[in-house]
Design a protein around this nucleic acid. Structure first.
Ligand SMILES: [Mn+2]
Ligand SMILES: [Mn+2]
Ligand SMILES: [Mn+2]
Ligand SMILES: [Mn+2]
Lengths: 224, 224
DNA sequence: ACAAATTTTTAGATTTGCCTAAATTTATTT
DNA sequence: AAATAAATTTAGGCAAATCTAAAAATTTGT
């Protein structure tokens, strides 16, 4: 049980990536998938897989992919908790916009201080979701899985509240801002174009036409 | 003019140490002094001195010691600004005690985001001093040099306000807490023991006997 | 001034994290 | 069931940051 506090930044980033690609299940993740996600080379992933396996954070057998151990999952959740809490902090306390927070949170998530992150959590009044609608794991690694669906999967006439984004890239988020789409807004599907799957929607008071591209990156919590 | 944003953590720590040992003057600092301060070996310092000289951050000639260039000084002040602002943040916003902040600030000072630190500055209402009484450089590298003297240098009957500590180690700070000594308190020298230089002082309402060790690590701003 | 002590640098290793190129294993086609 | 393609690992190397041991320069003491 190698101490989590002496993990390097690189190791933490690998663990986080493996979690995001494989979920908390012990689904093995392919070397190439990790390499692509981390913008590194497969051979580097293999090296790290061995090291993380030695440390007991992942299961690894040659050619069989990588999956997180119990400890690996806990570690991943702890890093993700920090990342998302910092994102909330930046938005709520420092007036960052939701398209600016990710880059800084990528750095802040590696700060080693349990007290620090717990105090940030308290300062923010224990938020459950980050600025992109993603759930924040609690100290003991639990988090809410909100039932939500992609706007593109709703039927005509169906509606709900916008609760998250799938694509969290700055360009997409800025596009949403420009079109008055934000978390918490009420959305209703007015019309669906069969040809290109584009949608005519009502968002709060106004109406808007959006492409399938957009609709398939917006999460909605359906009305009862 | 090598971009400050691509400095490694190690480079930043060297620059900060050279600043603390040499001041903002271009006083050359000895290799051994840097090594001792950073708990590393002189040969490592020599290596880094060459690298920093290549980057234009220090002046370095073999056997002549290291001193900061203009850019080096600016860089040092920027890191110190971040360190001290984070320390204030931790105390004022997250209820850390002044003996807990340094270690975390050592990590936070390396976060790369100009917007982040400027927003923290604003959130704290542009503090001029950190929790240990050390001045916080402004964005453009200026800082107040408060006139202060060591309590051990005061005459009997002289007095003032406690404005800083020289030793910022956790044990010393905890000792001060235990004895009711804190920044902002009024101090008067009641008696001085010639034999061991210990002092009898009045601090706010109470009286206290302190050793020379303690008195020579407390800064006081004398009354007019 | 010159020998001795001290400081500093150089030379050569080590570890971490990454790379390229080549070899190997696994998966997919014919 | 081969043959081909794709994925993965191995081998060997490189840069950063560190170390130890030895050499060189500087400083100190007589
Ligand atoms: Mn993010
Ligand atoms: Mn997020
Ligand atoms: Mn400090
Ligand atoms: Mn301080």
């Amino acid at each position: 049980m190698t101490n989590l506090f002496l993990m390097t930044r690189s190791e933490e980033n690998y663990i986080k990536t493996i979690f995001h690609l494989g979920g908390s299940d012990s689904v093995p993740v392919a070397t190439n998938a990790i390499a692509e996600q981390m913008e590194t080379k497969p051979s580097s992933v293999t090296d790290m897989a061995k090291k993380l396996a030695d440390k007991g954070l992942v299961h690894y057998k040659k050619y069989q992919g990588v999956s997180l151990t119990e400890i690996g999952i806990k570690t991943a959740l702890s890093i993700i908790r920090k990342h998302r809490l910092w994102e909330v902090f930046l938005v709520k306390k420092l007036d960052f916009t939701w398209d600016e927070v990710h880059e800084v949170a990528e750095q802040l998530e590696h700060i080693k201080s349990e007290k620090l992150i717990d105090k940030i959590d308290e300062l923010l009044d224990f938020p459950k979701y980050d600025p992109h609608g993603d759930p924040i794991p609690s100290k003991d690694g639990k988090f809410m899985v909100r039932d939500k669906e992609l706007l593109s999967d709703l039927e005509v006439k169906a509606g709900g509240v916008c609760v998250g984004v799938k694509d969290t890239s700055a360009p997409f988020l800025k596009f949403l801002d420009k079109n008055g789409i934000a978390l918490g807004k009420t959305i209703e599907v007015l019309e669906k174009e069969d040809f290109d799957q584009s949608l005519h929607i009502k968002i709060d008071q106004s109406e808007l036409h959006i492409s399938h591209q957009i609709a398939s990156n917006l999460y909605v919590k359906k009305n009862n």
